[in-house]
Nucleic acid binder design. Structure first.
Length: 271
DNA sequence: TCCCAGGCTTGGT
DNA sequence: ACCAAGCATGGG
């Protein structure tokens, strides 16, 4: 079915760096996996996206893509009205990144993915996550497309296969993945609430402030979370003159703004 | 507060 | 062939 939205860009979301299993499969189609669900989708026009899935799966994906909110339009309007420090850069970044949404991703998958992301490049994060899934995940067949895919391994599966984790090329991050599994086995995933989830996650060995802020934004949907990685730090230093005026103005949209700036800045470096 | 190892891959000389 | 850097973190 076709979903109409003036703020939904498949390619930009796939390349935004918030998810690592969404990739192009040719012919304009993308595929992604979340939980036990598989989806193929493509951009039909600037404001239309075709979702190749059943009606019941669409409920899952509507939530996943954060489609039932007018937050994005409110954000865009607010950006147009902003004339404070850094407004030129922010307006350009948001215009360029229009269509990026903050996904509602699985708590466990996102935690592990961002532990793996540390001191790593996006293509290699994706390949590490795929390796993890193809090695320890469950093999499934999508009823709509007939395609085979692997789910992300759950906590127990990882705890039962520690040796495997140490031998799939995660580097020094392997022990962090194990410690996250042990921690979450104890607390349960419901322990990570939107308000305090980031701080709670930092009790896990291998989860510092940067990973926890990504976790809060991309899994717990804490839109006020503003992850600062090397790219965002460069933006703050070189584009925004370390003036944090925008942070107060965009308070409840900071996570979305971070994604726009991150995506825009990386595009500038690729030219 | 500052500094560096740890593991592994890619991209640039 | 060599080496730096990559959506950081923990420990000294």
């Amino acid at each position: 079915m076709v979903i109409t939205s003036d703020w939904l860009d498949v390619q930009k979301i796939a390349d935004s760096g918030q998810c690592f299993r969404m990739k192009s499969i040719g012919g304009g189609w993308y595929r992604t996996v979340s939980g036990t669900n598989y989806l193929e989708l493509r951009q039909v026009s600037a404001s239309e996206v075709e979702f190749n899935c059943s009606q019941s799966d669409m409920n899952f994906w509507r939530f996943y893509f954060d489609l039932d909110t007018d937050l994005y339009n409110k954000f865009y309007d607010l950006v147009q009205k902003y004339n404070g420090s850094g407004s030129d850069y922010i307006k350009k970044a948001v215009e360029y990144s229009k269509g990026i949404r903050i996904l509602n991703q699985d708590v466990w998958e996102t935690l592990v993915s961002f532990i793996i992301s540390q001191r790593n490049s996006i293509p290699r994060i994706s390949s590490m996550v795929e390796k993890l899934c193809s090695t320890l995940g469950n093999k499934m067949t999508d009823s709509t497309t007939g395609k085979e895919y692997f789910t992300f391994p759950n906590i127990d599966k990882i705890l039962e296969n520690k040796k495997v984790i140490y031998n799939i090329g995660l580097g020094y991050r392997d022990e962090y993945v194990i410690s996250a599994a042990e921690f979450c086995k104890m607390t349960g995933l419901g322990y990570f609430d939107k308000k305090n989830g980031a701080a709670k996650a930092e009790a896990i060995k291998g989860v510092g402030h940067k990973v926890s802020s990504c976790f809060a934004l991309f899994a717990l949907h804490d839109m006020e979370s503003f992850p600062v990685d090397v790219w965002v730090q460069r933006i703050l230093d070189n584009r925004l003159n370390n003036d944090s005026e925008f942070m107060g103005y965009f308070k409840e949209y900071l996570g979305l703004l971070q994604q726009c700036m991150f995506y825009y800045e990386r595009s500038l470096s690729k030219q």
